[in-house]
Design a protein around this nucleic acid. Structure first.
Lengths: 173, 173
DNA sequence: CACAATAGTGAGTAATCACTTACAAATGTA
DNA sequence: TACATTTGTAAGTGATTACTCACTATTGTG
């Protein structure tokens, strides 16, 4: 991976996250990365290819998070880890999360399959804890972390820890 | 309001919700509405003006919902109404909600002020019920309905009522 | 009816879009 | 050194973009 190639990916992520994929032209990405526009097509074939590369790069980090969570044995700890997830979005992961959340609404890009392993782990955890409807509880948590992440990504956070504690109390964590 | 004007708004809402605002050209809207492209600019000045008109039209319905909720006196009923909101998105309101949720991620369009009256009503309700941290509870609920709406708008719903009941149980409703 | 205002059209506009091509510079490898 | 491969650029391409303009059709009003 060349330095210029990395610059393209970095600029594309930044611009796609800030202004949206559709309204960010390849020429804008090239200008921001300090390369000729042709180079984008040399390395990534077309605009879609660039998006795919950006997404793949971004998702490596997320996969590590998820793998750690799924392997947690103690059910209470697993639920706690998942609930805490959106409250701990790191500065350097901000742009990638903004992009993935925004892209959800672009018709073709939504992929629910990546959520399955986490949902399964959640269901098992609630089952172990003797909850009445583990599947519904898992869905509920998933909906919540989606909403919380949205909230934190869109407006500056306030009293995060209070909110997290109030939430944890609902599951006696 | 002319018939053609209504058609433009209807087509624009549909296309913006399906394919996104940025990637829907004015010519596409005109073709879908069966009018000349020039007419769009005659009536709505420019592309942004058309979006504003679509949004304004769409939001009339939402305001009625909110007004009803805010005026509910019984705290338990108020909370229940808000929790139920995303579970009852009507067919004819689907496109407008998809558009508003997608537009959240477009840098400039987000307006948090419309949420304030509802959040205030929620805080008061939790206060009346003697909850420890009413403000945090209100935020929590708001995050949840955001996540639930997202979930219902993006993938086909399943066991909605089970999920709603599990959720209501957490607030003893 | 007269006539002004509004509604609507179709053919433009320059700018920008994603993408290609021909060619040069840098690099790997024998 | 020789030469093939990869990296990079500059100047294009036709299509599409948001938008304008000159014009006609329809409608409301005295």
């Amino acid at each position: 991976m060349t330095e210029k190639q990395k610059n393209i990916l970095k600029s594309a992520l930044k611009l796609y996250a800030q202004e949206g994929y559709a309204s960010t032209s390849t020429s804008k990405v090239a200008r921001s990365a300090g390369v000729s526009e042709g180079l984008i097509f040399r390395h990534f074939k077309n605009k879609e290819g660039l998006l795919a590369a950006v997404l793949q790069m971004s998702m490596e980090a997320a996969k590590l998070h998820m793998a750690d969570i799924v392997m947690t044995a103690d059910p209470k700890e697993l639920i706690s880890k998942i609930l805490t997830l959106p409250f701990k979005i790191k500065e350097e992961e901000y742009e990638m999360w903004r992009l993935t959340y925004a892209l959800k609404w672009q018709t073709d890009s939504y992929d629910a399959s990546s959520q399955e392993p986490v949902k399964l782990a959640l269901r098992n955890a609630f089952e172990k804890l003797g909850y009445e409807n583990p599947a519904a509880e898992a869905e509920l948590i998933y909906m919540f972390i989606d909403g919380a992440a949205t909230s934190f990504l869109l407006h500056p956070p306030e009293h995060r820890s209070e909110i997290l504690n109030t939430l944890k109390a609902k599951y006696k964590l």
